[in-house]
Write a protein that binds this DNA or RNA. Structure first.
Length: 315
DNA sequence: CAGACGTGGTG
DNA sequence: TCACCAAGTCT
């Protein structure tokens, strides 16, 4: 049995066939799963976001006609909110109908080459390889590649895809990466590629780990302003958390003010230490004032929800 | 083309 | 406590 046949056989028996986005032909539902799963654990998407989102937005057209704020609200807590804005934009541009070829798909906001191929493979059963983190790791180990060179990996992926069942092959490669050829403690004995794997004697060294610069810490101040029992909030305009609602933040500590405590939050590229300051409504510009109940319907980032929690728990 | 971009889980 | 990771894309 060739390695390709072994991969296929392994998938039939051991693949994650129960994943909901594998039990549909609806390109929108597959596209949505691909976007949600970018840099995000399957467990998180499955248990907290995929079904509620589809409940609120059952079709791409329903996303297209909805206000962006509603889409962001369903994305609240998932992170990388540009994905939600790109999804909304794409829904409008496509008029609710996704194209069926990788070139057009890849031209849409938020859809790169790997996601375009994944949609074409999983929704339309086209013979195109995918190259996500799982597949990259499997390929690097199987061919003993120390460096994740995109060009080389795409070539390897194309060659391995020359099989009778490209759909199953792609799903299998992801499942093997997620379940067997894991980043830490890979289970080589259970791997269908083990027999001819060039990296099995030192899987941890393929690909070679690259050192990440450790993230800086920023100390800032969150301003809490009340007006007639309502909280003053802004809708963020900067790149980080764009479109989400939250408290005004400043770099310098305002003078002669009352501190309500501190919250810390870690982003992918910096750590934030926030001191919560009771501000003066006359000197803080906000986009609106909201009751605790009204805030429930706004999309807030995790750090702002931490602040809300702090404010209302200490009362 | 490195860095920006969120969050929660894990060893 | 902390580094690293998890179905990447954009600038």
């Amino acid at each position: 049995m060739s390695v390709k046949e072994a991969i296929y056989a392994w998938y039939k028996t051991n693949g994650r066939h129960d994943l909901p986005w594998r039990q549909t032909n609806d390109a929108y539902k597959i596209y949505l799963s691909e976007i949600m799963l970018q840099q995000t654990q399957v467990k998180t998407v499955l248990e907290r976001f995929y079904f509620p989102f589809l409940e609120r937005f059952p079709t791409l057209q329903s996303v297209a006609v909805a206000p962006l704020d509603d889409v962001l609200k369903m994305w609240e807590g998932l992170g990388y909110y540009t994905r939600a804005r790109n999804l909304h934009h794409t829904a409008i541009i496509c008029k609710g109908v996704l194209p069926k070829n990788p070139e057009e798909l890849g031209g849409l906001r938020g859809i790169g080459k790997s996601t375009a191929h994944a949609i074409c493979s999983f929704a339309y059963h086209q013979a195109l390889p995918i190259l996500d983190a799982n597949v990259k790791r499997v390929l690097c180990r199987y061919f003993a590649l120390s460096i994740k060179d995109e060009k080389v990996l795409w070539e390897k992926a194309w060659k391995l895809l020359a099989v009778k069942h490209p759909y199953e092959h792609n799903q299998a490669m992801m499942d093997i990466g997620a379940m067997i050829c894991t980043s830490k403690n890979p289970n080589c004995l259970a791997c269908p590629l083990e027999f001819t794997c060039k990296g099995k004697n030192a899987p941890e060294s393929y690909p070679k780990a690259v050192k990440k610069a450790k993230v800086p810490t920023k100390k800032r101040f969150a301003l809490v302003v009340f007006q007639e029992g309502k909280l003053g909030l802004i809708q963020r305009k900067e790149r980080l958390l764009h479109g989400l609602w939250g408290f005004v933040q400043v770099d310098e500590k305002p003078k002669g003010v009352h501190s309500l405590g501190k919250v810390a939050h870690t982003y992918s590229h910096f750590k934030l230490e926030l001191e919560i300051i009771q501000g003066d409504a006359l000197h803080v510009n906000v986009d609106g004032y909201f009751t605790e109940e009204e805030i429930e319907s706004l999309a807030l980032s995790t750090v702002d929800k931490k602040i809300i929690q702090k404010i209302f728990s200490s009362k």
